[in-house]
Computed example of a mutant assay.
Amino acid sequence: MRVLAAMSGGVDSAVAAARAVDAGHEVTGVHLALSRSRGTLRTGSRGCCTVEDALDARRAADVLGIPFYVWDLSEQFAEAVVDDFVAEYAAGRTPNPCLRCNERIKFAALLEKALALGFDALCTGHYATVSTAADGSRELHRAGAWAKDQSYVLGVLTDHQLAHALFPLGPTPAKSLVREEAARRGLSVAAKPDSHDICFIPDGDTRGWLAERVPAAPGPVVDAAGVPVGHHDGAVGFTVGQRRGLHLDRPSPDGRPRFVLRVRTDTNTVVVGPKEALAVDLLAGGRMSWLGTPPARAADGFDCHVQVRAHADPVPATARLVRDGGAAELVVRPLEPIHGVAPGQSAVLYVGTRVLGQVTVDRTATLVNGEAVPA
Rank of each mutant, 00 (worst) to 15 (best):
L248D: 12
A211T: 13
R2Y: 11
V373W: 02
A145G: 05
G219K: 03
C48D: 09
D266Q: 11
P294F: 11
G326R: 13
R250Q: 10
R2E: 13
R93A: 12
R320K: 09
R207M: 13
T360E: 12
Q345N: 10
A147W: 12
P193V: 05
F77M: 04
R19M: 14
L278D: 10
D362I: 00
A5H: 00
D254H: 08
V21L: 15
G234F: 04
V306Y: 02
N369W: 02
C304Y: 08
R262Y: 03
H232G: 00
V221G: 02
K275W: 14
S151W: 00
A319V: 10
R287V: 13
L282S: 10
G44V: 06
A317C: 12
L278A: 06
L122D: 04
A116S: 14
D362P: 00
L187Q: 10
G286P: 07
A16V: 02
K148W: 00
H311P: 00
V222T: 13
V272Q: 01
L99C: 03
R244K: 14
C48W: 09
C304F: 06
V260F: 03
V70T: 14
R2S: 12
C49G: 10
G286I: 03
P215C: 06
R320Y: 03
T269F: 06
G255R: 10
A317D: 06
M1V: 13
A147R: 12
A20M: 09
S176W: 11
W71P: 06
A5Y: 03
T269G: 15
A114P: 02
G255Q: 09
D83R: 11
A216G: 14
E180K: 07
D84T: 13
G39I: 03
V280A: 15
R244F: 12
H196I: 01
R179V: 07
P294N: 11
V240N: 02
T43V: 13
D194L: 05
L64Q: 02
A17Y: 05
A327D: 12
T366V: 15
H141G: 13
G155S: 14
A90F: 05
T318K: 09
R46E: 08
L4P: 08
A108L: 14
G352F: 01
D56L: 09
L169C: 04
V348W: 08
D324S: 13
L291F: 09
D194S: 13
V236T: 15
G186T: 09
R320I: 08
D22Q: 15
L4A: 06
S74T: 08
A235E: 01
F85W: 06
A121K: 09
L187G: 02
